[in-house]
């Protein structure tokens, strides 16, 4: 038995779920950002698997995965720069310390 499309999708679902948990439960902003990367990777697995199993005449899924990687790289660069800027202001990377925008 060969691994099918649903295997990859289940793997992606699991990875995505772990990423969601990380986003929701970590206090460190950098860890949250890492979890976001996990979620993006899960999405990419879906794209690549679809490129192979659903439409392999045109491997458009791979193109999209490539763009996701590009945007993720940009996001990480800007996100980390923001974290450094925030750290300079508050001397903290703890999400609980950033609650200016409340009621």
């Amino acid at each position: 038995m060969m691994p099918g499309l649903s295997h990859y999708l289940l793997l992606a679902a699991g990875l995505f779920g772990i990423g969601v948990y990380g986003v929701l439960s970590r206090r460190n902003v950098i860890a949250v950002l890492m979890s976001v990367e996990l979620m993006l990777n899960a999405v990419n697995i879906n794209f690549i698997a679809a490129a192979k199993f659903v439409n392999h005449e045109q491997i458009v899924g791979q193109v999209f995965a490539l763009f996701v990687i590009v945007v993720a790289a940009a996001e990480v660069a800007v996100g980390l720069a923001l974290i450094i800027a925030m750290y300079r202001h508050k001397k903290s990377v703890n999400l609980n310390d950033f609650n200016l925008l409340k009621w």
């Binding site: 679902a13 699991g14 995505f16 779920g17 772990i18 969601v20 948990y21 986003v23 929701l24 439960s25």
Partner: peptide, 10 residues
Amino acid sequence: IGAIIALLLT
């Protein structure tokens, strides 16, 4: 609550 939501979503 984060764990529950992640589990439900998965």
